[in-house]
Design a protein around this nucleic acid. Structure first.
Lengths: 112, 112
DNA sequence: TCAATAGTTCAAGAAATTTTGAACTAAGGA
DNA sequence: TCCTTAGTTCAAAATTTCTTGAACTATTGA
């Protein structure tokens, strides 16, 4: 059994950005990027939402071409489609992940 | 008279991505990037939507911190907040604009 | 075979985003 | 001053996206 994934040329920029423009999904991608190479199963994201809700967000990520979902027994292994994304949109994933790791700059009300 | 713009530290990544995850706004940003240094007035985007609708989309871009809007007489000059965005999220704008310029790869049904 | 685990699907409601037209403001030129 | 141009604001309708619980499927282990 295998889930539908878009091919590289079906990956649409606006859609990728829209999908990543959501706190929950951005947090998921950030987590995947931090643990790259280690495919994660859904329950690892339970902190980010309910099971049902995660199923929805993970499907969005997969359908946009951002993640790959492999079925392994009773669970699903999620990973970033790093190579494909890098090929389709060089530098994009890196800069987004880097930006996601950036702390919000300190608010300095009284400087100088 | 001056319109409200977020300061650098108020620029939120998820919001920037969400705002750019829309075909109309992405087209506007792409156009601005192609003509960087030349501030554009709103009517230049009339191809992308109605006057009212553009007003809405341009406000979204401004409120997210992606563009700057200066009032000049009876018109408004729109430009990318390039330096600020580069400082806040290095490489992000460049990779998005580059990705937006990328043509959709050809669909080759019969290769090899 | 039966129960448990992992995750999906569906339908419905809640919420947010887009789009539109009509009416409006502000500046510039005749 | 009056008209035109540039763009905004508002409210309503249309559309899309998110969230939820209940019921479901598939695989594994006892």
């Amino acid at each position: 059994m295998i889930l539908p994934h878009p091919s590289i040329d079906q990956i649409d920029l606006a859609n990728v950005l829209a999908v990543l423009g959501d706190q929950t999904r951005l947090a998921i991608v950030r987590y995947l990027a931090r643990n790259e190479g280690v495919p994660m199963n859904c329950s690892q994201f339970l902190d980010f939402g309910s099971k049902t809700n995660l199923s929805y967000h993970l499907a969005k990520l997969r359908e946009a071409g951002v993640t790959r979902t492999e079925i392994s027994g009773t669970s699903r292994l999620i990973s970033l489609r790093r190579a494909e994304l890098d090929q389709r949109f060089p530098g994009l994933l890196d800069s987004i992940v880097a930006a996601a790791e950036t702390p919000t700059p300190q608010f300095s009300e009284n400087v100088g």
